[in-house]
Design a protein around this nucleic acid. Sequence first.
DNA 1: GGATGTGAATGTCTTCACAGCT
DNA 2: AGCTGTGAAGACATTCACATCC
Lengths: 214, 214
Amino acid sequence: MVSFPRKISESTVRRLSLYLRFLEEFEGKGRLTTSSEELARRGGTTAAQVRKDLSVFGSFGKRGLGYAVPELAAELRDILGLSRTWRVALVGAGRIGSALFEYEDFRRRGFRIVSVLDADPVKVGTEWRGVAIRHESELERTVREEGVEILILAVPADAVQKIVDRAVDAGVRGILNFAPTRLRVPEGIALNDVNMAVELEALSFALSNRTEDA
Amino acid sequence: MVSFPRKISESTVRRLSLYLRFLEEFEGKGRLTTSSEELARRGGTTAAQVRKDLSVFGSFGKRGLGYAVPELAAELRDILGLSRTWRVALVGAGRIGSALFEYEDFRRRGFRIVSVLDADPVKVGTEWRGVAIRHESELERTVREEGVEILILAVPADAVQKIVDRAVDAGVRGILNFAPTRLRVPEGIALNDVNMAVELEALSFALSNRTEDA
DNA sequence: GGATGTGAATGTCTTCACAGCT
DNA sequence: AGCTGTGAAGACATTCACATCC
């Protein structure tokens, strides 16, 4: 709970998350300093953008020298709320759900999937790496008992809004939605959509309209 | 190959893709007309935004009446390049790859995965729904023989850049990247990243900094 | 009357360019 | 000298508001 100035743009936050990834890579290689220029190159942006992004939160560099890698990484982890673990429930034990459950990057970053829920009675009662798959009807109880703060939605599409409403009532504060639907959430609940079809269609658009040459 | 004015913003394209989804839903229900107001409500934006987005490409509505659902849907499919099928190769037959392979929305929109490639000899030679899993070393040949235009990258992370370079050389023109790395592609190649870790971290940031009350 | 299409106004994000530390 | 931090300028995106047409 650091409390920051004004409104911070989504794109700034996404870039910070990228920078952090690079910094951790540098840490792994034992590199001690870096520069806005280098982070920009790796992140596909400009040095000025990197500095602006960071300047929203403070001054972390030394003029003439650059940034100390471990220090800046630690700052970014703090800013992004990654210096703690988050208790996550996964709804949907299908293929996407399973892929997300195994996704190493989540685990490494402190997102701990403490519960998996599904509507399919065949799956309910089995378990994944020691996490029991429970029936969707137990959503509220699970959220409360397990102290779930974040919900990952990996279900085909329809009844999703109801699940969200119930989860929010039970105390969930953030939702990562993979269902191709626009969800309504109350003020104050964080929501992020990952719509893979939209991404592919954006590609298709780009390929169909190569006008920018000539 | 319709060729449109100026530079069209990424966000406009993404919204069009959303609108199309809603229109198709309406089509399914037999609804014949809609309005910018309705599309906006469904898409979480404003009516003015919807009209601006569409106006970049033409005038598809009737003043006083709104938009004809099937006509507008057809226009959007044209604009987005979805009136044809795209030949896609999937690199990575792991969990994410498998989830994407089965993803109904891709199939329905005309993205046909004609080839799956993996580095794991155990997987190579098996098949998914009639599509043989080939060894990654056959990438170039596959791209050429199968006329692959789009590559979906669902591999853990590292050697990804090399795969991209080879694929581009062989003729691939668009890439949907799920690996948490920033890729370099030549001018004229379309690239889209889906970074799920970044999305989760953006949530974590939002949850850690609820300052906007008070 | 009612909803579109669009210039003009506003708001937001990015880039520039340079003063200020190290 | 080198690289950050940052106001100011510029580019881009969204919202407003209304003339236009069905």
